[in-house]
């Protein structure tokens, strides 16, 4: 599904040039659950941003489902992204002015799904996630765990083949954090590819593969039997 070859990303300011990713290469198969770990500043968020097509590499190749992404402009990346990738963030990133229903509905609006179809899909999903009783509430009225569930629902509403999660349990207590991780596992078991950036070994243990980064380079990879979706 994902093929990276010699991917490099350099950040430049007037005075400093820093290499966030240095010739990174790896592949991720469809249905995998992969964790990316490493200390602060190792480049894991940069890698996730490039995988999520939110940023462009300096050089190297990034193929997503056979399509070369690194040469695409923002419009091209946006078109691929909105159909294929759902995002889950550490700080949820819900829009405060929209209700739970409206937050989840947002990707469908941008994918030009009709109002009736949107209503059907959102209602199905919020029932499934157990948050239908909060549909008309605003994010400020929810607990952290509920907000993250809304964020997960929003990421799933377009049924993307790939979920990218950036420290999804970082702002949650352990109980809610486990809930979110179990949710991700369920998704993965159902066939969704999940790539997660985390500091937590506990969270990483839910995944089938762990890639360790240090100073912009892969230093090790570890596989386990957990987190391998049935292909």
């Amino acid at each position: 599904m994902i093929n990276l070859k010699n991917l490099t990303k350099i950040y430049r300011t007037d005075e400093i040039e820093s290499t966030a990713l240095n010739q990174v290469s790896f592949e991720i198969e469809k249905g995998e659950f992969v964790s990316i770990m490493g200390p602060s500043g190792c480049g894991k968020s940069t890698l996730l941003n490039i995988l999520g097509m939110l940023d462009k590499p300096e050089s190297g190749s990034y193929k997503f489902m056979g399509t070369e992404i690194s040469g695409l402009n923002e419009k091209g990346r946006s078109a691929v992204r909105k159909q294929n990738i759902g995002f889950i963030f550490q700080n949820f990133n819900l829009i405060d002015e929209l209700t739970v229903f409206e937050n989840i509905e947002l990707p469908l609006i941008y994918n030009k799904i009709s109002a009736s179809e949107r209503k059907k899909r959102v209602n199905e999903l919020i029932d499934k996630m157990g948050i239908s009783h909060r549909a008309s509430h605003f994010p400020q009225q929810l607990s952290g765990g509920q907000q993250q569930r809304v964020a997960v629902a929003r990421a799933l509403i377009t049924k993307p083949p790939l979920i990218l999660a950036d420290e999804p349990t970082g702002n949650l207590d352990s109980s809610h954090g486990n809930e979110v991780m179990e949710l991700l596992c369920e998704l993965n078991e159902a066939g969704t590819t999940v790539i997660m950036v985390t500091h937590s070994s506990h969270d990483a243990s839910y995944s089938g593969r762990v890639i360790n980064l240090l100073d912009g380079q892969i230093v090790s990879e570890k596989k386990s039997n957990v987190g391998q979706a049935a292909v």
């Binding site: 992204r81 909105k82 995002f87």
Partner: peptide
């Protein structure tokens, strides 16, 4: 800003 980021991530284009 956050709202702009979220909307872009969820599929909004700049013209939208």
């Amino acid at each position: 800003a956050k709202e702009v980021g979220v909307r872009k991530v969820t599929g909004a284009s700049k013209p939208m």
